[in-house]
Write a protein that binds this DNA or RNA. Structure first.
Length: 630
RNA sequence: GCCGGCGUAGCUCAGCGGUAGAGCAGCUCAUUCGUAAUGAGCAGGUCAUCGGUUCAAAUCCGAUCGCCGGCUCCA
């Protein structure tokens, strides 16, 4: 019989009769966790026969590719359970996602929490039966007929986008679903399932189409892994900046002020101020001019810039006063452009870098608001670099070099979306080319995202996951040939003739709101010393030590340290607990011994009791640690 | 904006048709204490808002507002 040569990832190689299944080969190993394989890089079911020489890579739940298959099969199991409990349910799509899977259904009404429990219970029963999952080929016209008679309009629409004939289906226990696969060998592989939430989701992500009911879930090969995952979710909730913001008195949102308009409480405002000073110092050192411009502007400004045509749905409606029509600004660029225009520029002066912690107001739809991470009034760490075309790449690169790692998204326009993006193909092509060039020169990997650009140009977005795993854009850099054109910007070149500069828009630490949300979650509220709103709290043992405690506080304040005193009549243990819960980095216990010797007993947030040190020595230590910004 | 869930004291929550409760926080008093909660007392609520059902509504129904999870959108 004809043989095929198979090589494995460990470098070994063997020959098998043609047509041997992957399952048979996997059975020769002593591993029971192989759930599928990649054959020459293509994921395949274990039931697939080998027809030619191939490189085989086994997949288990431990591999990202294996998880995908595992969760995809769980999504099918979910669909099967829903179909059994709701025979009229129409199926849409059910892919694996980063953590688990979802499946979209149309059952004519939303799922209730009770439905979810029933579905989850049915999934467990079905998994227990351990039915084999089989791939079957179905003639295209048969599939179309089946979808029509079953009223499966979503599946029918999906099929229109698939050119194959026949198309592949997967069948388990009488249930079948059109699917590319691959899948687990049988349903019994799914040991621990949890359905996490339901929500509405637009068919094909289009808000003008049907709203389907989505069920999110996750599954694992063992109960322990599921429990560990659920525990991680709980831990993430503890780090949630909204919860910590309330507990640590950093910020508050009140109905009377308005949605998406948070109040920075004294503690939060202190952290913000430290960040602001840091940023301004840093940027002035990098050659940026920090300016200040007003939050309101004449509508005219935004008509010139193009915001009026392309960004109006994010702007608050104009207000009429005297003969003027004013709007709250959604972006700062036009103001900075007017600053550039306020005087003539020689080619020798460029680049001109104009920066501002600029307040902006954007109308965000109510459902998207979230703590400090997504608000309606915000302050952007904004800057606009006006440069010559030959300086563009260097300027862009030096901005990006300032970023931390994380992942980069190059956001491009969708040429078909004429409403959202200004029309000028040559300009877009040039800007996109420059951006890709610079990223390649920097050696940075990035993904491209069509339709995510600004209306005036493509941008580089730095994406950072928050504690709940959702990506937020932190930094952004945009290349803009459009606004200089709109505003008729010029510089005088070597040839004494006017030339058009190019603009780079950049926000490095995002808005102060989003950065604060990010930092709270990053540190779980325990800010490093330089950022901590209350860096030190002095804890007198008894009331008679209060005067000395105040002296310690004044000495520290004099050295620029933010120090508080706990003047309550509680016991020391209680005071420590309070300070610890507020995540104060240093607690200084002072009693008779300390007062007599001009010392303080240091207790650090992380390290516990560190013993007594002279006050002057501690002050020096704190000042040094603060300056280190760690 | 759309789909669903949830709104009870400053915070965390119980009560789920018979007239509002706990713990923590706050205030007062006592205690003056050495490294994560001293004790006692007091005060605090139009049960988000408005309307309906009922002899009776925090509790059931509806609308509105807000928050939460998604969708869409985004710094």
């Amino acid at each position: 019989m004809e043989q095929v040569a198979v090589t494995f990832t460990d470098g070994s190689a063997r020959r098998y009769p043609r047509g041997t299944t992957l399952a048979a080969i996997a059975a020769e190993t002593d591993r029971r966790d192989i759930l599928a394989a990649r054959v020459d890089g293509v994921p395949r079911d274990l039931a697939a026969p080998l027809e030619r020489d191939a490189a085989v890579e086994w997949l288990t739940f431990g591999d990202p590719g294996g998880k995908e298959i595992y969760w995809h099969s769980t999504a099918h199991l979910l669909a099967q359970a829903v179909r059994e409990l709701f025979p009229d349910a129409k199926l849409a799509i059910g892919p694996p996602i980063e953590d688990g899977f979802y499946y979209d259904f149309d059952i004519g009404r939303p799922f209730t929490p009770e439905d979810l429990e029933a579905i989850e219970a049915r999934m467990r029963e079905l998994a227990k039966r351990n039915e084999p999952i089989e791939r079957i080929a179905v003639r295209r016209n048969e599939a179309i007929r089946a979808f029509q008679s079953g009223g499966e309009k979503y599946k029918a629409e999906l099929l229109e986008g698939i050119p194959d004939d026949p198309v592949s289906f997967y069948r388990q226990d009488g249930f079948q679903d059109m699917c590319r696969g691959p899948h687990l060998p049988s349903t019994g592989w799914i040991k621990a399932v949890k359905l996490l939430s339901t929500s509405g989701a637009y068919w094909r992500g289009d808000e003008h189409r049907e709203m389907l009911q989505r069920i999110y879930g996750i599954s694992f090969p063992t109960r322990e892994e599921l429990d560990a995952y659920l525990a991680r979710l709980e831990e993430a909730k503890r780090r949630d900046h909204r919860k910590l913001g309330r507990e640590l008195h950093l910020f508050a949102s009140v109905e009377e002020v308005g949605q998406g308009l948070p109040l920075w409480l004294p503690r939060g405002a202190t952290v913000r101020r430290v960040l602001e000073r840091y940023i301004i110092d840093l940027e002035e050192g990098l050659g940026y001019y920090h300016v200040h411009t007003p939050d309101l502007a004449n509508t005219q400004l935004y008509k010139i810039s193009g915001h009026w045509d392309h960004y109006r749905e994010n702007m608050y409606p104009p207000m009429k006063v005297d003969n003027e029509e004013l709007v709250l600004r959604p972006m700062n660029c036009p103001h900075h452009i007017m600053i550039y225009k306020n005087q003539q520029h020689s080619y020798r002066d460029l680049p001109v870098r104009i920066a501002e912690l600029g307040n902006m107001y954007r109308y965000e739809r109510s459902g998207v608001l979230s703590g400090l991470a997504r608000v309606r009034g915000m302050t952007l760490n904004d800057a606009h670099i006006f440069c010559r075309p030959d300086q563009l790449t260097d300027e862009f690169m030096s901005v990006v070099r300032g970023f931390r790692e994380y992942w980069y998204r190059v956001s491009l326009r969708d040429p078909a979306d004429r409403a959202k993006f200004v029309q000028n193909d040559a300009m877009w092509d040039l800007a996109e080319q420059k951006l890709r060039e610079a990223m390649t020169a920097l050696g940075l990997r990035f993904v491209e995202a069509k339709g995510e650009a600004s209306f005036y140009g493509p941008k580089l977005d730095v994406q950072v996951p928050n504690v709940m795993g959702k990506d937020e854009t932190i930094s952004t850099v945009q290349i803009d040939f459009y606004l200089p054109e709109r505003f008729g910007l010029e510089y005088i070149g070597e040839d004494s003739q006017p030339h058009r500069p190019v603009m780079i828009h950049r926000g490095v630490i995002s808005t102060l709101e989003r950065m604060m949300a990010f930092l709270i979650e990053l540190y779980a509220g325990a800010f490093p010393l330089w950022l901590a709103p209350e860096q030190v709290r002095v804890l007198p043992i008894a009331d008679r030590h209060l005067a000395y405690a105040r002296r310690v506080q004044e000495a520290l304040r004099g050295a620029g340290v933010r120090a508080g005193v706990d003047a309550s009549s509680e016991r020391t243990g209680h005071k420590i607990r309070e300070a610890q819960l507020m995540k104060v980095p240093y607690m200084l216990v002072v009693g008779n011994r300390e007062e007599e010797q001009e010392t303080v007993a240091v207790r650090s947030r992380g390290g516990g009791d560190e013993g007594a040190v002279p006050l002057a020595a501690l002050t020096d230590r704190l000042v040094t640690e603060i300056a280190s910004r760690r």
